[in-house]
Design a protein around this nucleic acid. Sequence first.
DNA 1: CTAGAGTCTGACACCCGTGTCAGAGTCAAC
DNA 2: GTTGACTCTGACACGGGTGTCAGACTCTAG
Lengths: 138, 138
Amino acid sequence: MRIGALSRRTGASERSLRHYEKQGLLHPQRDESSGYREYREDDVRTVRNIRTLLAAGLNTAVIADLLPCMVEDEGELAPGCAGLVTDLNRERDRISAAVAELAASLDVLDTLITAAPPETADDPACAEDDAEPSPVHS
Amino acid sequence: MRIGALSRRTGASERSLRHYEKQGLLHPQRDESSGYREYREDDVRTVRNIRTLLAAGLNTAVIADLLPCMVEDEGELAPGCAGLVTDLNRERDRISAAVAELAASLDVLDTLITAAPPETADDPACAEDDAEPSPVHS
DNA sequence: CTAGAGTCTGACACCCGTGTCAGAGTCAAC
DNA sequence: GTTGACTCTGACACGGGTGTCAGACTCTAG
């Protein structure tokens, strides 16, 4: 199939598909006369795997290493890629740290929201009487 | 105090402090003869507030709106900043969505890690240098 | 043959806080 | 007077997947 069809079947834009190829994630054949990319049926699944991993926060370089190890089944890894687990765990830690950071950010915002002056608070439960009119600095 | 001192006291680089000013977050006086920025003692706290909000995922435009409403105390909001709570809640929702997205990413990675082949030490061709037999850490 | 859809490559923009550099001016200390 | 630390402005780069455009070529249906 050509790039337009693959785009429709995967939801990835043609732009993205060309980008994935340039990053070494896809290797479509080329039509000799036209130069058009010719994708195989397998590539539909490959692109979906790529999208999944991108959504997981991995970049194309990491995915390029990971992709050859993925097999047909649900997120399963091919044998012989055991060393990859180290990389995956590193990614996992990275994402985990990001989650922790954002969770802390939520706390900061919640503190601010809770401390909002009573007249502006959405939730009446947050209302407090000690509205101290401190001068607003310029 | 001048920019170097403020940088040391806040941990923000001079580059960042100049950036914050350009974004309207700081308004230091200028020495008439030298043109050097002159910061007030208050600015130390202001910069710390800025850093906190940036760490919370807010951008400088949002912070510019938010900053005049913050008072001296811990994350408290000044009165008379109606409508701000709505903005804060929107930011909260945005971060919350990001957390959910990353959590889903963690699931994807965990699925891959769990599906990894059980230490294929049998096949030397698959051995990798960085393949440490470390257990999956969570 | 022709119109229109499909595809090609290459390039620029975006986000947005931060790092870094260059060239020049300022200030305090010796 | 000289040296060295400090500061100034402006500009470029980064990450990194994606949007979008321009100009040109290819394919297919009528």
